[in-house]
């Protein structure tokens, strides 16, 4: 049996809102030690999502035996809208389930809402992601990166990320012209999340599809910082930390062989 209780429904709502525009169907893999993990690829096979909700994401978590829950995220999203952000949210599934029970509990009123979501058999490929040695790692406010991704999409289909030891530059070239934003490393002692950290082994210059970056920055609601790991001619890793665990996006670059 699975029973996972979130202190606030908003955490799962934000997670699902961050991925459901990229992936419609996905398997939630549940286990006692790892909590709930998801690996899913978008329809165009360009973006891979890796989610890890450790047991620490939950106020209470038990999973007596490993199980896979095949979910339609659009349907799950409809049910999650029924609860309030502050509610307790509990996911319950029996062994070999054909449905997932979702329970909202209002913390102030004696109100309990229960929903049952039909599960699906989802056949999905699992990709092996090796721990990569990265050329660069950037940690910056997620709101800043989100603004760049959204603004530059209006100018160009692609966004270039150029990292040197002194700076990270985001650049877009489109029909109307071009633009760039440069950030330099910066430590904000009063607001550490506002700091910008650049670790560089080798400079990189990579190009990514603006459409996918716009999907990725939907997860900015989950964390005030984003870590971007870049390696020449390899997918970029965009990571948002959860209270315990992470939401990662691996995005294939654009380049000519």
């Amino acid at each position: 049996m699975l029973e996972g209780k979130f202190d606030q429904a908003s955490l799962l709502k934000k997670i699902i809102d961050s991925i459901r525009d990229s992936v419609k169907l996905c398997n939630f893999n549940c286990s006692q030690n790892d909590g709930i993990t998801v690996q899913a690829i978008d329809d165009s096979r360009v973006l891979l999502i890796a989610l890890k909700m450790d047991p620490g994401c939950f106020q209470e978590f038990r999973c007596d035996r490993d199980m896979v829950l095949g979910l339609d995220l659009e349907s799950l999203g409809k049910i999650l809208k029924q609860g309030n952000n502050e509610d307790y949210l509990t996911l319950i599934a029996e062994d070999n389930p054909d449905s997932l029970l979702i329970v909202f509990e209002d913390k102030k009123k004696d109100r309990i809402s229960e929903f049952s979501l039909k599960l699906m058999d989802i056949d999905s490929d699992v990709l092996t992601i090796d721990d990569m040695d990265n050329d660069c790692s950037i940690t910056m406010p997620s709101a800043d990166f989100s603004k760049i991704a959204r603004d530059f999409k209006t100018m160009s289909e692609s966004l270039q990320i150029i990292v040197t030891k002194e700076s990270v530059k985001f650049k877009a070239e489109g029909q109307i012209g071009s633009g760039s934003v440069i950030f330099k490393p910066h430590t904000d002692l009063d607001n550490p999340d506002e700091s910008i950290k650049i670790d560089m082994n080798q400079p990189v210059n990579l190009t990514f599809g603006a459409k996918y970056l716009n999907d990725i920055v939907k997860a900015s609601t989950l964390s005030s910082t984003i870590t971007i790991k870049l390696t020449d001619k390899a997918p970029a890793l965009f990571e948002f930390k959860l209270p315990s665990g992470y939401l990662r996006y691996y995005l294939a670059p654009k380049f000519e062989d």
């Binding site: 096979r45 490929d125 990709l127 092996t128 289909e157 997918p235 995005l251 294939a252 000519e256």
Partner: peptide
């Protein structure tokens, strides 16, 4: 315009 690669060109299917 540079061509968009897919993620499977980098990460093998298990």
């Amino acid at each position: 315009n540079k061509p968009q690669l897919t993620i499977e060109e980098f990460f093998p299917v298990e």
